[in-house]
């Protein structure tokens, strides 16, 4: 009796989680499937499997410049994340080692930045960037992305540095390292887990950031993926296989990285709950 009830419960659990997984999976599979179809079979039988592996849609989509968008996204994401890690690391270290009220006040100021969404300051952001003559430049994305990534990363590093063993630092200072050298040679190299966590978290958001990139980048050769793939829609009005092929190309890299390193992704993003 007890055994049977247990089985029914298990069935419900697996049924529910399995069903949800399917609902999530099907649109993604549909995207990959459609990109291997011909335009005709797409319209006649949208739900059927592709008759054969057909990569022409990928060629058409690649022609829009997906390759260039990807390079741009990699550059912007890498530069922004590197900047965020170094700048936030320096700031958090100073905040944990400074004495007195100023450090607390500065920490609160930086944390307050966490509450400000980019969407709410779009007009002045645009004014500042265009006023500086920086429209259509990668730097005009990298610097604001860094600025908006700093607060959360400082919070994360702050907690990590507070627990950092002071003996190591004192030894380094005795050996004649300045505070800055101590940070670069001792603290940063030993902060691997915190850095990885921050870098993954920020990468996901910056790689997918849309609204600022949409405003700043009008030049096709500078566009990042989220802005670039929007062109697929206009370019191939009725050519769904090409749109889906473009989307597959755009989403595959991060999906692959995610599947391979999902443990780290999950740990990093779940850190937001702390």
């Amino acid at each position: 009796m007890d055994n049977r009830r247990l089985n029914a419960t298990t069935l419900v659990l697996y049924g529910f989680v399995g069903l949800w997984s399917l609902v999530v999976l099907i649109p993604i599979v549909f995207m990959f499937m459609t990109s291997m179809k011909t335009r005709n079979s797409m319209f006649m039988r949208p739900l059927d499997l592709p008759e054969s592996l057909n990569f022409q849609a990928f060629e058409r989509a690649w022609g829009v410049g997906i390759g260039q968008f990807m390079v741009n996204s990699v550059l912007v994401t890498f530069l922004s994340v590197a900047l965020i890690v170094v700048i936030s690391g320096l700031a958090a270290y100073a905040l944990t080692r400074m004495q007195g009220g100023w450090s607390k006040l500065t920490y609160l100021l930086i944390v307050a930045g966490f509450a400000i969404p980019m969407q709410a300051v779009l007009v002045p952001l645009f004014q500042i960037i265009s006023g500086a003559g920086m429209l259509n430049s990668r730097l005009a994305l990298v610097l604001p992305y860094a600025a908006y990534g700093i607060p959360f990363t400082v919070i994360l590093f702050y907690a990590f540095f507070l627990d950092f063993p002071r003996e190591l630092e004192e030894a380094a200072r005795l050996d004649g390292c300045t505070r800055f050298q101590t940070f670069m040679r001792i603290i940063l190299p030993l902060s691997g887990p915190a850095i990885a966590s921050a870098a993954i978290f920020q990468s996901v958001f910056i790689w997918n950031e849309f609204i600022l990139a949409l405003l700043i980048l009008t030049q096709p050769d500078l566009k990042t993926l989220p802005v670039g793939i929007l062109e697929l829609q206009g370019e191939f009005t009725a050519d769904w296989p090409a749109v889906m092929a473009g989307l597959s190309l755009a989403t595959l890299p991060l999906l692959l990285v995610f599947v391979l390193a999902q443990k780290y992704f999950v740990r990093s993003l779940a850190g937001l709950g702390k």
Binding site: S21, I28, V257
Partner: peptide, 12 residues
């Protein structure tokens, strides 16, 4: 699988 859409851009 359930977490995967999180890493796809909302535009896509």
């Amino acid at each position: 699988i359930i977490f995967a859409p999180m890493v796809i851009s909302s535009v896509a």
